[in-house]
Write a protein that binds this DNA or RNA. Structure first.
Lengths: 237, 237
DNA sequence: CGGCGAATTGACGGACGTCAACTGCTGTGG
DNA sequence: CCACAGCAGTTGACGTCCGTCAATTCGCCG
C-alpha cells in the first residue's frame, strides 16, 4: 500500500509536483496509494464520476473514447505521467475510459485533496495549469494530425517520432499491439497493415513489433513532420 | 482604448475572472486594451510567440491549424470567451492561427501579467486551471466526434446542438459561412452540401443560412447525440 | 497438442475528395 | 443605374482512400 521511496522520488520529479511546497506534496501523497493492476483493467469508465487523480508509475495505459458501439484510442500513456487531471479539477464525470495495456503500477491520489491543495498552494495551482496547458496542446496536435493528414502520413510521422524517442537508431520497437496503434492513428487494423506495405516503398521494413527505417530522408519527405504537430509528444490528462 | 464599463462587466463575469481578487482583476485589465478588428484579420499566426491573452468581447472568431498547404478550423469562438490561454500559461509559441470571422471587439491582456497574477492569487490560478480543463475536455469531445462519427452524423449533431443553443425552435440560422462549417466538421464544402442533401430524408430543410428541422425525433435517431461528446459545447483556448 | 486471438491478405463496396461547370448573390465602378 | 467581376454554394462525374467481410497464417498460452 505505501510507496517505495524510489517511486516517491519519481513522482516528486514530475513537473506537476516538483514546484509544490513540501507540505502540499506530503498531503497529496499520504492520502494516496499505489496499486498494481493486470493488463486490460479498466481503471475508470467513460461517464463515471472521478474520485482520484491517477499517476502511471510503471507499465502502459491508454485513454479511449466510445460512441455507438465503436471505440477509439485517444492517447497511450507511458510512465511517469498523470491522467484524468481535467476531470479531477472540475470534479466532474470522465469523458474517457482509462485502461491498462500492460501490468501497471498506478498511484491514486484523492481528487478532493488535489482541489484543496490547489486552493492553498498557488505554486501547485500554477503547476496544474501548466500541466493542463501541455495536455491541451497535445490534443490540438492530435486534432491537426487527424484532420490534415492521410493514414499513411500519420503512420510515417508516428514512426519518425517513435524512432527519435527511442534514441534515433534505424530500428524501433512498437510499444504495444498493432491494433492499439491502428486505433490511436484513427484507422482499422487491416488498414494499418496496408499503410505499412505502402511505406515499404519508402524504406520501412516490418518484422513483427520491430520496424526498421532504412531511408530516413525519403520517409521524412513523405511524412513532412512539423514542429506544430509532432514535436514534443506530450503526455495526457 | 479604454473599455466601456459595460464591457468590463461582461469580462468580469467570465468564469476565468469572476473568482479572482479585485486587485488581481484590476492589474490584468488596466494593462489590457480593447481593439476593433475587421473580418478576416489574423490576430495571431501559428508558430508565433504569444504576448497576449485574448478575449473575444463581441463578434466571431476561429482557431485554425495548417499543414502542407491545407487548413482546418479547430474551433469557432463566440463572445464572451478567452482564447490562446494554454500558450500564455506556458509562454510558448501558438499552435493555431486565430482569425476574426466577423468584425470583432477583442480584449488583449498582457501574458506576462496573467502569469504573474497566477503566482500571486491562488484563486485566479485555480480559475485558469478550471478554464483549461474545460478547454481540454472540449477538445476530447472534438477528437471523439472526428474519429468515431461519419460526416453526416457530425453534421446532424451539429445541427441539433445549434438548435438547442438557439432556443430550441424548429429553425436555426448558421452563424457563419458554410465553408467554415465544413472545415470545422472536417469535410470539404462540396461534401457538406451532400451531407445536407442526405439529411433532407430526415426532415432537414435548408434555405441559405436558415436550417429547419421538421422531424427532430427522426434526426435524433440518426445523430445519436451523446452527453460525453456533444453536451455543454465548450469555448476554447 | 489444440485453440484462441493478432496480424495479414484479398475482394468488394461505400464514403469522401477532386475537378469542373454552373447558379446566384453581392459589391463595385463605369 | 446597370454591367460585370468575384466568390459562395451547388451539382455531377470520377477516382481514391478507407472500412467491411471473409479466409488464412502465425504465435502464444493453456
Amino acid at each position: 500500500m505505501s510507496m517505495r521511496s524510489v517511486d516517491i522520488e519519481r513522482v516528486r520529479a514530475l513537473a506537476l509536483f516538483s514546484g509544490a511546497a513540501p507540505d502540499t506534496f506530503d498531503s497529496l501523497i499520504t492520502g494516496g496509494f499505489l496499486q498494481k493492476f493486470p493488463a486490460g483493467t479498466a481503471l475508470l469508465m467513460e461517464g463515471d464520476p472521478v474520485d482520484f487523480l491517477y499517476v502511471l508509475v510503471d507499465g502502459l495505459a491508454e485513454l479511449q473514447g466510445t460512441w455507438n458501439a465503436k471505440e477509439t484510442t485517444i492517447a497511450v500513456l507511458r510512465p511517469v505521467s498523470s491522467f484524468i487531471l481535467a476531470a479531477v479539477v472540475l470534479d466532474i464525470d470522465a469523458l474517457m475510459t482509462a485502461r491498462t495495456i500492460e501490468r501497471s503500477d498506478i498511484l491514486m491520489i484523492s481528487g478532493e485533496a488535489v482541489r484543496r491543495a490547489m486552493k492553498e498552494d498557488a505554486a501547485f495551482a500554477v503547476a496544474v495549469a501548466e500541466e493542463l496547458s501541455g495536455c491541451y496542446r497535445g490534443l490540438v496536435r492530435t486534432v491537426k494530425n487527424q484532420k490534415l493528414r492521410g493514414a499513411s502520413e500519420r503512420l510515417a510521422n508516428y514512426l519518425l517520432a517513435e524512432q527519435l524517442s527511442q534514441g534515433g537508431g534505424a530500428t524501433l520497437v512498437l510499444p504495444h499491439e498493432k491494433r492499439v496503434l491502428a486505433s490511436l492513428l484513427g484507422m482499422t487494423p487491416e488498414n494499418l497493415s496496408r499503410a505499412f506495405s505502402n511505406l515499404a516503398d519508402y524504406g520501412v521494413e516490418v518484422n513483427g513489433p520491430e520496424v526498421s527505417i532504412h531511408r530516413p530522408a525519403v520517409l521524412d519527405r513523405l511524412a513532412k513532420p512539423d514542429r506544430l504537430i509532432d514535436s514534443h509528444l506530450r503526455p495526457s490528462t
